[in-house]
Structures are given as structure tokens and as C-alpha cells.
Amino acid sequence: MTKCHVLYLACTAAIVGTSLGAAPSAAARTAHVVRPGESIQKAVDAAVPGDTVFVAPGTYRESVTIGTDRVTLRGAGPRTVLQPAPAATRAAGTCAADGNGICVTGTKDRKVQGVTVTSLTVSGFTKNGVYASATDGLTVRRVTAEKNGVWGIAAEGSVRTAFRSNTARDNGDAGLFLANSVKEEQGATDTQGTVVQGNRMEGNRIGVTVRRLRDLTVARNRMTGNCAAVFVVGDENKPKAGLVTVRDNRIERNNKSCPKTPRLDALQGSGIVLTGAEDSLITRNVITDNAGSSPLSGGIVLFKSFVGTTSERNRISGNVLSGNSPADLVNADTGQGNTFEGNSCRLSRPAGLC
């Protein structure tokens, strides 16, 4: 591992050989450069707030944990690949032992702030490609997460997260997953403006899952070949999941078939599903050719949650839908105040929603 004390832009030009768009700074920062055969984790451990760890092209058989504020982990694009370390080298209780590729971890008392993970591939981990817990202002950008056992890129208990311009494909569950907590029963938490934008999800069980969260936007993504594209999930806990905006996405042919699980029916042909959510806006999406025989199949589907919680006061407006089966719009929920206005579609259940 080598170090150079230079401005971000100068260091990028001199070492990586390409402009990565970092803004000039009045104060020098440290760039830690990692080449094949060297340890990414050692470089991350040496970094202080404001530093960047540049990972040169190559395949790195290791997992990486980041717990320092404002550290950037930057690869050289798809040619920088993280894959699982040999089992014998995975110390108990570590990111690697837990089956994850990159872990960004704060604590119950203090969220890790301002971390960026960008321009690399995480592939083949038994659990998650990138997993974040207790973070504030995390950015994951231009990351490819593929063939991981559970989630491609995930954030739990985090605020102000930005997932932008990533590719998540062929992961066992959700390509992108965001939740309040996966281990505790509690009401939905406010993400303070989390954004999922400009990503591509294909071949996953679900493209994007938003679980028990509020104040979040899913925009301008493309989802195809999943069992379901977007799931907004709530339950009986208070406050309910909601205030989620799903807009300007292109959702087509999400017709992969996925079997039933203990908490979810079999999936196939689901575009956008709201279950147990309130006060959300689904607008200006193009949703085509999603077809299946699951109770959750259809272009845009409102459905009671697993525990019977209804969806209420959601607005479905200005979407363009065609070729979805059993219908473009499906309201299988008995919740009050849900509205369907200005959508371009041909078939709905019940009739009259188009």
C-alpha cells in the first residue's frame, strides 16, 4: 500500500489516471492506494475522516469494514472486484464471517457519517454485497452487486442514504434493500430524505424493497427480469410505513418466478406493490408486460400486509401501464382513501380504476 498527500483531483489524475470528478478542496487529503495483492482493509484502517482509499483494477478476495466518518472507498469501475475470502481466513464476528462484502457500520449510540462507496463490483457473497447499519449520509454509487445470496446493496437503521447509478442483478432477495430494522419489531422510521435513483435492477427476487420506512424516494430506476420490481412494506407497528414516493421508473417484464416464503406468497409479474403503507405517491411510472398468477401479480397492486394491515390514503396517478396481468391496476385492499387518477391503462381489478 502506498500513500500520497495531495488534493483529491490531483491524486486521481496522478495515480488512477482518470478524472473521477472529485471537487477540489482547500485542505490536502490523504489518498491510500491499494493494488492487487495488498489489503484494502489495512488501507481503510489507516484512513482518517476525509481520506479516500483508491482500489486499483483487480480481484480482491476479502471483505471490508468501514467505521470511520467521511471515508471514501473508490474502485476503478467494474474492473475492481471484491469476492469472498477463503473460509479459513474469516475471523468470527467480522463482515466476512457474516457473509458480507462491504460493511459500513455505526453503533446504536452513534451513526457513522458521510461514507461513500463507489465504482467497484461486489460478487458472490453468501449474504450481502454491501451492507450498511446505523449510517448517516451514506452514498453508494456506481457499484455492481451481483450473485449475492441475500441482498445486493442494503441499509438498515440509516438516514439520508443515497443509492445512485448502481446495478444489482441476480441476488437472492432484493437488489436494493432499505429497512428500519430486520431484527426488531418497531414502527417505521423517518429516513430524512433517502433517495434511490438511477439504478438498474434485474434478475433479483425483488428489485427494491422499502420496509417500515418513511420519507423516501424511489425515482428514475429501471427494473426488469425480477419476480417483483418494487415492494413498499408495512405492518401493524406504529407509525406505519409511508410517505414514500415512487416516480419516473421504468418497470417491465418482471416475470421471473419465485416460490412462497414463510412471510410472503409466491411472486411473479409484480410491478409496484404497496402493502400496509400510507400517504405514498406512485406517479409517472411506465409499467409494462408484468404478468403472473400470484395474488400480488399486476402492474400496480395494493394488498393487505402479511398481518392484515391495510394501505390508506395512497395516490396512484399519472402512470402509463399496459400488458400487465391479471390487470394493470389491482386494488385488493380494503383500506380507505386510496385514489387512482389520470393513469393510462386498459384493465383494472376491480373495474373502473383506469
Rank of each mutant, 00 (worst) to 15 (best):
Ala13Ser: 12
Ile15His: 12
Gly17Ser: 10
Gly17Asp: 13
Ser19Gly: 11
Leu20Gly: 07
Ala22Trp: 13
Ala23Phe: 11
Pro24Trp: 01
Ala31Glu: 05
Val34His: 12
Val34Pro: 06
Pro36Ser: 13
Gly37Pro: 08
Gly37Ala: 12
Ala43Val: 05
Asp45Glu: 12
Val48Trp: 02
Thr52Ala: 13
Phe54Pro: 00
Phe54Leu: 15
Phe54Ser: 13
Val55Pro: 00
Tyr60Asp: 05
Glu62Ala: 14
Val64His: 03
Thr65Tyr: 05
Ile66His: 10
Thr72Met: 11
Leu73Arg: 12
Pro84Trp: 10
Pro84Ala: 06
Pro84Asp: 14
Ala85Phe: 03
Ala92Tyr: 06
Cys95Asp: 06
Ala96Phe: 00
Ala96Leu: 02
Asp98Glu: 14
Asn100Trp: 09
Asn100Met: 08
Gly101Met: 10
Ile102Met: 04
Gly106Lys: 05
Thr107Pro: 00
Thr107Met: 07
Asp109Thr: 15
Gln113Asp: 08
Val115Gly: 01
Ser119Trp: 05
Ser119Tyr: 03
Val122Cys: 09
Ser123Met: 05
Val130Ala: 06
Thr135Gln: 08
Arg142Val: 01
Trp151Phe: 13
Gly152Trp: 00
Gly157His: 10
Arg160Asn: 02
Arg169Asn: 10
Asp170Ala: 02
Ala174Val: 01
Gly175Cys: 08
Gly187Thr: 10
Gly187Asn: 09
Thr191Phe: 04
Gly193Ile: 01
Thr194Ile: 04
Val195Thr: 09
Ile206Lys: 00
Thr209Ile: 09
Val218Gln: 10
Phe231Lys: 08
Phe231Tyr: 15
Val232Lys: 00
Asn237Pro: 09
Lys240Ser: 14
Gly242Arg: 05
Thr245Gln: 12
Ile251Gln: 03
Glu252Ala: 11
Arg253Cys: 01
Ala266Val: 02
Gln268His: 04
Gly269Arg: 00
Ile272Tyr: 00
Val273Ser: 09
Leu274His: 03
Asp279Asn: 13
Asn285Asp: 14
Thr288Ile: 07
Ser294Ala: 08
Lys304Ala: 12
Ser305Lys: 05
Phe306Tyr: 12
Val307Ala: 13
Glu312Gly: 03
Asn319Trp: 09
Leu321Met: 13
Ala332Glu: 09
Thr334Gln: 14
Gly335Asn: 02
Gly335Met: 05
Gln336Cys: 02
Gly342Lys: 06
Asn343Gly: 11
Cys354Glu: 10
